[in-house]
Design a protein around this nucleic acid. Sequence first.
DNA 1: AAGAGGATGAACT
DNA 2: GTTCATCCTCTTG
Length: 212
Amino acid sequence: MKNNIFVLNKSFYTRLDVLQISKELLGKYIVTNIDGQRTVGMIVETEAYRAPDDKACHAYTNKRTERTEVMFREGGAAYVYLCYGIHHLFNVVTAEMNIAHAVLVRAIEPIEGVDIMLKRRKFTDNKPSLTNGPGKLCVALGIKTIFSGVSLTESLGVIYIEDRGTIIAPSQIVAGPRVGIFGAKESRFWDWRFRIKDNPWTSKPNIVRYED
DNA sequence: AAGAGGATGAACT
DNA sequence: GTTCATCCTCTTG
């Protein structure tokens, strides 16, 4: 079985369909080697962001700033940023150079190094609230903003993603809305959040009132 | 130079 | 259900 495991390489990340990549990342395994500690989690929930037309994307209208610059890189890098001054959020940069697409990893199922994750989160029990949110999983995996820009395609790197042969059928994928505090524009209604159906390690679905 | 606000989470009532 | 912690980035002046 070991020979069925491989690290996702450039050709996985550089494709142009970020929605497809978001769905394919479900069932893949994030591996981190941070502070000398190895932790692994299976991705169970993702969210797509796509400049220039996606209003929720930091690089909306292809705006380049010091922070968003990494999103314009060739696919296969990490984009980590600080939200609300507290939470580190981990994204995968996709598409070709100068096309700012990314996938936010929103929830994982702990696989290896659970004891390390528990210690980082100050938890005693392994339960869904350990990793069922984008800020939570970054704490559990040890991911911080200092890792923004690192390559995800090195098998000896600090962060990389593995295919272990897990197949998530389309019928097992549930799509839903992302956060929606945007103007009357369409992007708030795009169902660009993807989760593995009935997986207990996903976060709470976002509720959007379509009538307003 | 200053201020607003955000791809959230935890701790409340 | 509500509040607020906390700080970086971007916009404005």
